[in-house]
Design a binder for these strands. Sequence first.
DNA 1: TAACGTTATGTAATAATATAACATTTATAA
DNA 2: TTATAAATGTTATATTATTACATAACGTTA
Lengths: 132, 132
Amino acid sequence: MQKEHNLSKNQKIIFDLIDKSGGPMKAYSILFNVQKKGIKAPLQVYRALDKLVEIGKIHKIESRNAFIACQNSSCQVSKATAFSICESCENVSEISNSKLSKYLSNFSDNSGMKYNKYNLEFFGLCKKCKSK
Amino acid sequence: MQKEHNLSKNQKIIFDLIDKSGGPMKAYSILFNVQKKGIKAPLQVYRALDKLVEIGKIHKIESRNAFIACQNSSCQVSKATAFSICESCENVSEISNSKLSKYLSNFSDNSGMKYNKYNLEFFGLCKKCKSK
DNA sequence: TAACGTTATGTAATAATATAACATTTATAA
DNA sequence: TTATAAATGTTATATTATTACATAACGTTA
């Protein structure tokens, strides 16, 4: 059972927007979209984003500076994220593959480092873009 | 046998700086460091960085907006990158693990996407920071 | 070697992304 | 109910990256 997070007003507005968009959104595009709801400043957006990332409701797509709602069975895996990114249409989706996540979560090398988190981004062409 | 790339003047200056630094460097820190060599504008730095990334001499650490010299036997693997990042001291090193790279290069799922590139970033505490 | 296309450079301006600092309010828990 | 943490509001600013345009150097090949 995961902890239920009661989102604050701004957090909820911003999460709902990202979630409904169905894809990655950039911070200033979020800002533009929530201005009618009273969120006027970048910092208000970034603070909500930070929190949402922290609790695993959204993830940051690092290579795109964008944020996407977690699609992974109620966000249990915010420390083990994998995405596929189409380099043509920029469609992004979260990869849910237990073999992959097990493999990476258990990965260790001889560096002496203990890994507690990873982020993986795959790039390629999606089905649609491939057939063009 | 890989292609030999003859770096241009700016590319060489910037690659040498990053390479000698032994770690990741940020664009504006690079800019500051090469101003005495006549590189005065951000764009000059970014253009060189873009090219160096393209030919695999350096990689971008996406989560840090920083650039590191390739440490992976002459940069044959710029489409398959993995890094370990210490969240305390921010030390970064490139992971050379043939099992890992094989596993990820061959990864495919049922999305219909053909992956031709990936970037993986592991986070944790390095040996030194762990023992503090 | 002249002409051509490509790659690299120089420069100024500006766009896009993100944080610092400070004051205030709201929620949570002891 | 008080005090502690979390969230908000606001202004300013820092950091990262690109657009646009002009010029120069390089590499090919005719």
